[in-house]
Write a protein that binds this DNA or RNA. Structure first.
Lengths: 194, 194
DNA sequence: GTCTATATCGGGATAGAC
DNA sequence: GTCTATCCCGATATAGAC
C-alpha cells in the first residue's frame, strides 16, 4: 500500500475515532510512521485530506452495497443485512458513534464546505434502501421507508454511544425487523425478525 | 443577569452551534462583550465552563420536564409533548443537530471526563419518559419504550441535520405518534396521532 | 471585576537539504 | 519521496495594573 493510501487510511480511522478537527496532522503522520514534512508532499491542506477520506468512504460504501446486493436475490434480506450493521459494528458504535452521522454533524457545526460531500454517504445508503423497497413493491413510499430505516440506525447509534447498552441495540434491531415484516405482508413468516 | 451567567449562556449556545472544541474563549468573551482576561476571573479552565454549561442544561431540562408534567394529567399527552420537540426545534436541529446527542458524541470522541455528566441530560429524558409509560401501565417494558422514543428523536435529528428535510421530520413524528396509539390501545382514538 | 499585556504551547503550513 | 528546520498564527492560560 502506497504512502498516500496509508495516510488516507489512518486519517479515515482517526477522523472517526477522534473527530475531524481534533485530529492533528502530527497524529496522522505518527500513525503512518512518516514525518510531518513528508505529509505535505501528499496533501497540501487539511481540507484536501478530508476530501480524500470522504471519497474513500464513498467508494467503500458503494462496494459494500454492491456486495450486499449480490449476497441475496431477496430485497427484504438485503434490508435486514443493512439493519445488521448496528449489531456487527456495535463495539465501534458504542465508542465513537456512527461514522457517517457524526462526521456530517461535525462538518455542519463547523460550517465546512465539505459537509454536502460527506452527506453523499448517507445518500448512497438512502438510494440503496429505496431501491430495495421499490423491488418490494412499495413504489410511492419507498423513499419514506428508506429514511425510516436510516433514522433507526442513527437513533440506535447515538443512544448506544451515550448509554453503552448492547441489549438496547438488539431490542431495537428486533423491533424494526418485526416492523419490516408487518409492513410487507407479502412475505412469509419465515422471513420474519430473528 | 450577572457576568458569570452571561458567559454560561453564551458558551451554551456556542457549544451547540459550533461544537465544544471549536469554540474558543475569545469567541465566548466576544459574544458576552468582555475581554479574554476577565473571562479567567470567572472560569479557570475550559473544562470548568463545560461543566457549568452541562449543569445549566441539566437544570433547564429538569424545569422543562416539570412544566410538561404540569401541562397535562394524561401521560400520553406528555409523551406527545416530548415528540413535538423535533417539530418545534426543527430549525435549530436542521442546522446543528440535537444539543444532547451531538455533545455526548463529541465528548465521547474526545475521551473527555465530562462525557458521563453530559449523558445525564439523556438520563433525565429517559427517566421522565419511563415514568410516563409506567403510568400508562407498561410496567415491565416502560424503559424499553422510553428508549425507543429517545431513539426516534436522535434518528430524526441526525437525518434532519444531514438532509435539511422538514417533511421527513413531520412524517416520522406522525409515524411514532401512530405507533404510540397502537401500542397503547387503552386510550381512545381521539388521542391518536395528529 | 475588569482590563491590557504577555507567556506558552500546539496547530497548520512552508523551505530546502538529501 | 522523505527528511529537518522553521514560520506563523490562534488557542489556552497567567500576571499584574486599574
Amino acid at each position: 500500500m502506497g504512502t498516500r493510501e496509508q495516510i488516507v487510511d489512518a486519517a479515515n480511522r482517526l477522523f472517526y475515532q477522534q473527530g475531524f478537527e481534533a485530529t492533528s496532522f502530527a497524529a496522522i503522520a505518527e500513525a503512518v510512521g512518516i514525518s510531518r514534512g513528508n505529509f505535505y508532499y501528499h496533501f497540501k491542506t487539511k481540507d484536501e485530506i478530508l476530501q480524500a477520506v470522504i471519497e474513500a468512504r464513498l467508494a467503500s460504501t458503494r462496494q459494500m452495497l454492491a456486495e450486499w446486493a449480490g449476497d441475496s436475490a431477496d430485497p427484504l434480506v438485503r434490508v435486514r443485512r443493512f439493519i445488521e450493521i448496528v449489531i456487527t459494528n456495535r463495539g465501534d458504535i458504542e465508542r465513537y458513534g456512527c461514522p457517517v452521522g457524526t462526521l456530517t454533524n461535525e462538518l455542519a457545526k463547523l460550517d465546512h464546505p465539505a459537509r454536502a460531500h460527506a452527506v453523499g454517504v448517507f445518500e448512497l445508503f438512502r438510494a440503496w434502501l429505496c431501491e430495495q423497497f421499490e423491488e418490494l413493491g412499495a413504489d410511492t413510499q419507498a423513499d419514506d421507508l428508506a429514511m425510516h430505516v436510516l433514522a433507526f440506525s442513527q437513533g440506535v447509534a447515538t443512544l448506544s454511544n451515550a448509554f453503552h447498552d448492547s441489549d438496547f441495540v438488539s431490542r431495537e434491531a428486533y423491533r424494526i425487523n418485526t416492523w419490516l415484516t408487518e409492513r410487507l405482508p407479502s412475505h412469509t413468516a419465515a422471513d420474519g425478525a430473528r
